[in-house]
């Protein structure tokens, strides 16, 4: 560790360039991760709106409603099932009408059917999953008809799929670019100190003795770059997060953009450390061969 610190101190410019490169690269990765995490949160929020309504048969006695909801709650793909009796349905409708509720005064009998409102589990929030669940609900005794907003569900499924593809594709490309940039930067740092490697080998240093300080330096540079990237990302989020919320209020509603969680922050710093370590290892393998 002492050798690594001496090495970092003895080449401050190269160290600063390596740390800055890692930081900028990780800042891009981190900003992308932040975007994806917020979009995932948004999609998750929309996902909770994916609901099915299983209308009960006319013959079903009101007292049997909760039992039907319980049965439906046990089906695969059901997050939550709630019994909505005829009276409750009318009451909800009345509340929704607000000032126009007087229109309902002339009704001789309640025309609304009783139903079970089904919140769909995340595992079934796809076209196929919903079709399976719809089929299962339709086959349940006491259910007359199943309704959903088909187009909305299709749109939701497409958004999820697009987000996943973008996360894997763009994240993968960014990660690879980060590795190459960092490996190259550290390779230059190792190259700049080839005399030191040569002298160490000359006085009888083992490969391990030569390598460990360089690997530790890479690790420290990577960790430093990761912390710097996290700090810059945090500052950027504080500076622009509010403005973004204002701009996207129509999509986000009252939801506030969220910063990376503890796990995300740790992953960013650990990613920097790993990049530094891998970059050093690759550069050293070349340097020692030379």
């Amino acid at each position: 560790m002492r050798s690594a610190l001496v090495g970092l101190r003895s080449s401050p410019v190269t160290t600063a360039i390596a740390v800055a490169t890692i930081a900028v690269t990780l800042l891009l990765v981190g900003a992308f991760a932040l975007l994806i995490s917020n979009m995932s949160g948004l999609v998750e929020r929309f996902g909770r709106e994916v609901r099915l309504t299983a209308y009960a048969t006319e013959a079903l006695a009101p007292a049997a409603g909760p039992a039907l909801a319980k049965r439906i709650g046990g089906l695969a793909g059901v997050e939550r099932a709630e019994w909505v009796g005829k009276d409750q349905a009318l009451e909800r409708f009345r509340r929704r009408l607000g000032g126009e509720a007087a229109l309902l005064a002339g009704l001789e009998e309640n025309p609304l059917p009783a139903s079970v409102e089904v919140e769909v589990a995340p595992s079934h929030r796809s076209s196929e999953g919903l079709a399976r669940l719809r089929e299962a609900l339709a086959g349940t005794e006491g259910v007359a008809e199943v309704a959903d907003g088909h187009a909305w569900v299709e749109g939701y499924a497409r958004a999820v799929s697009l987000l996943r593809t973008a996360a894997v594709g763009v994240g993968g490309v960014l990660g690879l670019a980060a590795l190459l940039i960092v490996a190259n930067t550290i390779r230059l740092a190792v190259y700049a100190r080839r005399d030191e490697i040569e002298i160490l080998m000359l006085v009888g240093a083992t490969r391990t003795f030569v390598s460990v300080p360089f690997l530790l330096e890479g690790l420290l540079q990577g960790t430093g770059g990761g912390l710097l990237a996290l700090a810059l990302l945090g500052l950027g989020f504080l500076a622009f997060g509010g403005a973004l919320q204002g701009a996207f209020a129509f999509v986000l509603g009252s939801a506030e953009p969220a910063f990376l969680g503890a796990g995300g922050c740790a992953a960013l710093v650990a990613g920097g450390a790993l990049l530094g370590l891998l970059g050093s290892a690759g550069a050293l393998a070349q340097g020692l061969r030379a």
């Binding site: 002298i199 000359l202 006085v203 003795f209």
Partner: peptide
């Protein structure tokens, strides 16, 4: 490396580390 530790080497260009 074990053999090199028993051999001292001196060069015309000294090969010293300038930052140490």
């Amino acid at each position: 490396p074990a053999l090199r530790r028993r051999i001292g080497v001196v060069f015309q260009d000294f090969k010293l580390l300038p930052r140490r």
